[in-house]
Simulated assay, not measured.
Amino acid sequence: MNPLMDAEQAVLGAVLLDPGQLSHLEWLTPDHFYRPVHRALFAALRKLRGDGHPAVEGEGPVPLSWVTDAVAEAGLRVRGLTASYAHILVSACPRPSHAPVYGRMVLEGAIHRTVAQHAIRLHQEARTGTLRGEVEGALHHADVLTGVLTDLARRWGTEPRPVAPAMSLATAPSALPPAQADRVAEDEAFLLTVLVERPGAMGEAVDWLRPGDFADPVHGQLYWCLGALHHRGEPLDRITLLWEAQRRGLLADGTLSEDRFAAICDGVGAGDAEWLGKQVMRSSITRTAAASARAVRALAEDETLVPGRLINHALHALGPLDEVRARWETAHGRPTPRAPSPALSPGGPPPARVHAALTRSTPRAAPSPADRLGPGPASAAARPPSRNHG
């Protein structure tokens, strides 16, 4: 049982039975269909309508040429489509007048697939960036995903805004490859050594570097201690750091061992704190991007989420990456790019959004009691909800 495939067949069957239903499906495109044969057939039906096929404006029973011409046109794009399958689609449609509802179901499936595909791309780019030490690709794909979510929200007829899901998603970063993990750990330890040994070095990174940017939790805790000392205006050296670590319980609970503390504080502290801090942030961005991408993909694969909630939860899942990115821009002295707020029309929501909402929620008039497969002739002012093939 596959409700999405049933919906795709039903909407195509509705249009084959009643070409006039295409006027209620302007917001549905061939790309919204999952099966290639369905995409090709819907594209063919739209093309026939655009070319002025007689079945679109004709009265009485739908001519059989509407089906045969659609199959022939779609056959130019995909193989394996036969007239017999078109008749299967017709039989799969309970009521042609319900085509907008079937189309909404197809659009829902397309939204879930689209969000999942872009989340996978973001995750792949984040992992590649981890290996190469680059963040531009991950940030670009994050922008693309945000743009896709915003566009999907408008197509669905809702406002894109971050909303936290009822149950928080696990977004713990995955383990780095051994070679990258060793390099990141060395950069973090070297940065801590510089911050301890070089006076004033903390001021070069404290405005934009946070404990959560460190891949090693111990390194993050030590940076937290250094930040507390800096905030209180107290001197920074190995003794004051050790005392602060003790006050925060890092020694009592075994978080910080004597050997690890000695390895950090006994190192050579000649280095550029700002450059090292940016190296730590590079790793933080790619790890955060990968975690956000996994969270968005998990949301997209949840079939119980309606598109509005999926989109808003996905935007919320990208929030941690936006926060890290803002600090990355601050570290480079660049203003943080802000997405423009959608302008509110003085006359109310945009007509396209209103139309999308009405398509989903407004009850349609009950179909004529006449048999949908054999209606009699009708006047131009009152067209029956479906017409059979004569």
Score class of each variant (00 low, 15 high):
Leu251Tyr: 14
Ala366Met: 11
Ser379Val: 08
Leu310His: 02
Glu301Met: 12
Arg338Ser: 15
Thr362Ile: 13
Gly254Gln: 08
Leu315His: 05
Ala381Pro: 05
Arg372Pro: 08
Ser283Pro: 02
Pro367Asn: 00
Gly254Asp: 04
Lys278Ile: 13
His313Leu: 08
Arg247Asn: 14
Asp371Gln: 15
Glu329Ser: 11
Gly319Gln: 12
Glu303Ser: 05
Arg297Val: 10
Ile311Glu: 02
Ala366Val: 12
Leu299Gln: 08
Cys265Tyr: 02
Pro384Ala: 13
Arg372His: 14
Arg364Cys: 05
Leu241Asp: 03
Arg360Ser: 01
Thr255Cys: 10
Pro337Trp: 11
Gly319Thr: 09
Gly254Ser: 10
Asp259Trp: 05
Met281Trp: 06
Pro340Phe: 06
Trp328Met: 08
Ala357Lys: 08
Ser341Tyr: 13
Gln279Asp: 07
His316Tyr: 08
Arg294Asp: 01
Thr330Pro: 06
Asn312Gln: 10
Pro349Val: 15
Pro369Gln: 05
Leu315Asp: 06
Pro307Met: 12
Asp266Val: 06
Leu276Met: 01
Val280Ile: 02
Ala317Val: 07
Ala339Phe: 15
Leu251Met: 14
Val296Glu: 02
Ser292Leu: 10
Ala273Asn: 00
Val324Gly: 00
Thr362Ala: 11
Ala314Gln: 06
Ala295Met: 00
Leu318Cys: 09
Thr336Glu: 12
Thr286Arg: 09
Cys265Arg: 05
Ala370Phe: 15
Ala270Arg: 00
Ala289Val: 15
Leu251Val: 03
Glu323Asn: 02
Gly333Ser: 04
Gly271Pro: 00
Ala298Thr: 13
Pro363Ser: 09
Gly308Lys: 13
Asp302Pro: 07
Gln279Cys: 03
Glu274Arg: 08
Leu373Glu: 05
Asp302Arg: 06
Pro363Ala: 03
Pro349His: 12
Met281Gln: 07
Val296Arg: 09
Trp243Met: 12
Val268Pro: 03
Thr330Glu: 02
Asn312Phe: 02
Pro385Arg: 12
Ala290Leu: 10
Ala352Pro: 03
Pro307Asp: 13
Thr359Leu: 07
Ala295Thr: 04
Leu242Ala: 14
Pro367Thr: 01
Ala357Tyr: 03
Leu310Val: 00
Ala289Ile: 07
Pro377Trp: 10
Ser341Asn: 10
Pro320Ala: 06
Thr336Pro: 10
Leu305Gln: 02
His313Gly: 06
Gly319Ala: 12
Arg294Cys: 08
Asp266Phe: 15
Ala298Lys: 14
Arg309Gln: 13
Asp259Pro: 09
Thr362Val: 07
Pro346Ser: 04
